[in-house]
Amino acid sequence: MRTEPAVEVVGLVKRYGTKTAVDGLDLTVARGAVTAVLGPNGAGKTTTVEICEGYRRADAGTVRVLGLDPVADAAALRPRIGVMLQSGGVYPGARADEMLRHTAGLHAHPVDVDLLIERLGLGSCGRTAYRRLSGGQQQRLALAMAVVGRPELVFLDEPTAGLDPQARRATWDLVRELRQDGVSTVLTTHFMDEAEQLADDVAIIDGGRVIARGTPEELCRGGAENTLRFTGRPGLDVTSLLKALPADSAATELTPGTYRVDGKVGPQLLATVASWCAQHGVMPDAIAVERHTLEDVFLELTGKELRA
């Protein structure tokens, strides 16, 4: 088992004219894991991925993909990676099965094409030319083309953009199976739930740098504070509650009888609130902990809407 990471990017810089698209970015992608790269438009996601794929040269920094230089060692690297572009990549007049069979034929040990067609529901494309397929069918074909060569590492650039929920689930299942079978996956996405569902590791990119990274749980826990809500008698003594809580907490009565506690919400804080309620003869109804989603974390870190 090789221990080197699937992708190792250190101090990557890429400029287009006077604009700096990637500004000293570091990223490590573990073998056999799904790594999600999140970021608003223009954050440098696609530029970073395309440098890893060998499409562009870095202006500074080092990039190693499967231990190789994506440009200098392109011939050795290409058979080992699978690439799904954000759009296009297929002859307008080609049929889905024809293009997939052709792509399979460029590899030595491809996945069974019929199986892949069935798994991704591409059978419905029939004899229709690519340019007349729906956006979702085109996306799924591009995904199939990325994995058909049994690569060690796949780059998926927004694989579920424009998919209906059913096709989206089929794509998710496929990514999970890739992970199960030991394929390393780099996924850029606009969808927080997608990253939460699929990723072992998330890197949030903004302004050409990684501004946060970790597992989805770590990011949700570490970045934002969580909230606890409960209802009780109106007019409880919030100041007394606050005294019982850890120093960095806040407690307010939102509307009469609805209370909100902000802070590091964990079992300890929950117990503190419950015991304070018991001391004051209050039954805390509708007690609920609101976990922050990756979306909240993202907004907090970047101040931007993800799908802006």
């Binding site: 052709h102 034929g105 460029l106 590899h107 030595a108 040990h109 996945v111 060690e152 199976e177 079978d181």
Partner: peptide, 21 residues
Amino acid sequence: ATGTFTPRPGAAPLPRMIRAQ
């Protein structure tokens, strides 16, 4: 045991790729 996607990368022989293309 190997799964459907267990990595087994490799290019097809060059003449076969060019013929297919």
